[in-house]
Write a protein that binds this DNA or RNA. Structure first.
Lengths: 165, 165
DNA sequence: CCAAAATAGATAGGAAGCTAACTATTACCA
DNA sequence: TGGTAATAGTTAGCTTCCTATCTATTTTGG
């Protein structure tokens, strides 16, 4: 938590906790800034962070079922339902019933979405460029490496498992 | 986005975007893991991530108004209202009207909350210990340093400003 | 082959996030 | 001093997140 005053030093045994020394504090805060940045940049184009992520995965992987999409986005299928409802309402995606498995619904892009996707990429690149100012390539590589270690350490907490390459 | 297949390399000019090379991807993912870990650990004790954060700030700073608390938590005051409503319902905090400024409500801890706070510290320490396995002190310091740079680069996106030390 | 298990998607209810607008107060300044 | 601006908290409406449960369909095993 960002301090307006120095946190109390190591005295009270269990009642105090030095947040700023904790890596989780900084990661969560930085993540919040990233999501806020993307949300702000996307807003003029009428879509949200999660909606842009849906488009991204469909661009990469082509058509996907809801379960497949939810796995890639690391959210619960039930959560995705609402996101897709709103995107379908706005004609950003279509739910197409699969013929060979009638439980399945395949999510497809629409004519609208390709134009929108270009905007998303522009936003993402702009933010990435800004976020990495003052960091060398070596620092950046080290940062990602450390984050992968932390992520792996917390692996068994993660809900939807996708084997990351 | 965790790949189940390699992302297409630098060919399609604007339509593709290499998420995994992007630092934001890893930060958001790791943050998600952290919050999931804390949420899971706190659940048996009947409180949420944000509720634990409220307790944390009250332990550090003593009594705080809702605006002050919202600033420290980096959320909007309107969001905090709901969090505090539920905590008040569960007797984890009290809203005390201030006498010298009748708009203000001071948030105070209750007899219940100190016992709960000890649990929170235990959870946080457990997760921190687990998250940092395999990282040297130097790596950890470098990680925090890099995150502070990124956070600062994205500063003007942040909503509630608190001058970080 | 048919009952049980697994899977896909949806629904309901609760927590948390935002913006915009509203009410009460307090502060300011002309 | 008195009107306006600023501030504190709330409410309303929307999006996103979760878990638990439900229905429909497929798969599987006896």
């Amino acid at each position: 938590m960002a301090a307006t005053q120095p946190t109390v030093s190591t005295e009270s045994v269990a009642l105090n906790y030095d947040f700023e020394a904790s890596i989780g504090y900084w990661i969560v805060l930085t993540s919040q800034a990233f999501q806020k940045a993307l949300t702000d940049e996307l807003q003029p184009h009428g879509l949200t962070y999660r909606q842009s992520q849906v488009l991204g995965w469909l661009v990469i992987d082509g058509e996907l079922s809801q379960v497949e999409l939810a796995n890639r986005m690391m959210i619960e299928p039930a959560t995705l339902v609402g996101v897709l409802d709103r995107m379908e309402r706005d004609s950003l995606i279509r739910r197409c019933s699969s013929t060979d498995d009638r439980r399945r619904k395949v999510i497809c892009l629409t004519p609208q979405s390709s134009g929108v996707w270009e905007k998303v990429v522009q936003c993402a690149k702009r933010i990435r460029q800004q976020a990495t100012q003052g960091l060398s390539d070596r620092q950046l590589a080290a940062l990602i490496k450390s984050l992968r270690i932390v992520l792996n350490n917390l692996r068994h907490y993660q809900s939807s498992q996708v084997e990351s390459g």
